[in-house]
Design a protein around this nucleic acid. Sequence first.
DNA 1: CCTCCGTTAACCGAATCGGTCAATATGATG
DNA 2: CATCATATTGACCGATTCGGTTAACGGAGG
Lengths: 208, 208
Amino acid sequence: MNPKFYFLPQEKQQTILNAGFHVFSRNSYRKSPMSEIADAAGIRKSLLFHYFRNKKELYLFLWDTCAKITVEEMERSGTYEQTDLFGSMEYGMQAKLSLMRRYPDIGVFAVRAFYEKDPEVSSDIQRSMGRYLAVHAEKKLQKLDPEDFISGIDLQMMYKEMYWASEGCLWEYIQRGSMDTDAMEKDFHELVDFWKKVYIRKRQGDKR
Amino acid sequence: MNPKFYFLPQEKQQTILNAGFHVFSRNSYRKSPMSEIADAAGIRKSLLFHYFRNKKELYLFLWDTCAKITVEEMERSGTYEQTDLFGSMEYGMQAKLSLMRRYPDIGVFAVRAFYEKDPEVSSDIQRSMGRYLAVHAEKKLQKLDPEDFISGIDLQMMYKEMYWASEGCLWEYIQRGSMDTDAMEKDFHELVDFWKKVYIRKRQGDKR
DNA sequence: CCTCCGTTAACCGAATCGGTCAATATGATG
DNA sequence: CATCATATTGACCGATTCGGTTAACGGAGG
């Protein structure tokens, strides 16, 4: 990638990145034309080729950038330091939302890239994935105290259910095409509120 | 559409339909080549054009077929007659699963077609949608008796949460690319079980 | 042998693809 | 104004792919 790209004004860089995320998130690698990305970025195709030698380079650059800023955002938000389940859930959501406000299509792009089958890029994606695959939050489950939740509840199932619900909510917005992050934030917040009310054990002496 | 298509053996019809659902569900209308569909169906492109005059005709035929068999399956399964919320949820899921066993990509196809923007087909899709848009299950909510559920629960939120969770679960399978309907059935069933345990009010004198 | 018909190979013109490059626009400097 | 470096573009290329057509193939039945 041409280092001159980094000297572009932040805003222009972001526009180009978003154009890439957008097109690659809606089509497979092979069916994502550079021309379409250039159009979405408001520049000419030739300029896009000026910054990135070829399509593959742009694609992998987007993938790396995606991983980089995701990790940055997660650390910045303090999600990892949260010990409470619902707290970390909400923090994680906030991080995701803040990311999606700057890069609306980054989430779908990441998923699609991860499952991309095209031999021209799939191996590179999978290889670099090994580096980024952090020890996922599943560990959280073992630290949960059953006494904090309503009696008899299957904590693993609860966690899975919560995960699916938030993904399903996200999916609804994705399908619609418009990424109204404010509405999403509201929905997510209501979800967490609902979970708290339903799943948390009410102890005698608790306020509320 | 060439009426000869109907005289094909059921199995071959289904193979062609599935090939169409598959390709159109993974790419936009414009980026779904007829050749790819023919390949997926195991026939030559020219034969595909023998049954369907052009791409648009095939696409709209798939859309109509999709609507038709969905309605059929819903009626056959008896989902509409279910009065109990979780019962209708489970019946609906079973109907969806039975559909997806025969037509693995029909669900994603339907969603994608509904949001398709290409001017060559979007207007036709939207127009015919008006005919199929049944009075959705949302009415169910008003018939629910709050006494049946744990006290203080927001029923609307509960319903929304359940919907999202099932969609999120579905999404996970879609992304993975493989439609393991048996595993899905297991997951869905466990979900409903979980909901029942958590949301239903336990009355004194209830068995279990 | 012929006829019928499902099926195909070969082909067509147009469009699109990734990528190149000479030319132009822009802006700073002297 | 002239000069020069840099940012950006238009025009172009060869290869491929697209939707769609058509003549011919090949097997079954008479």
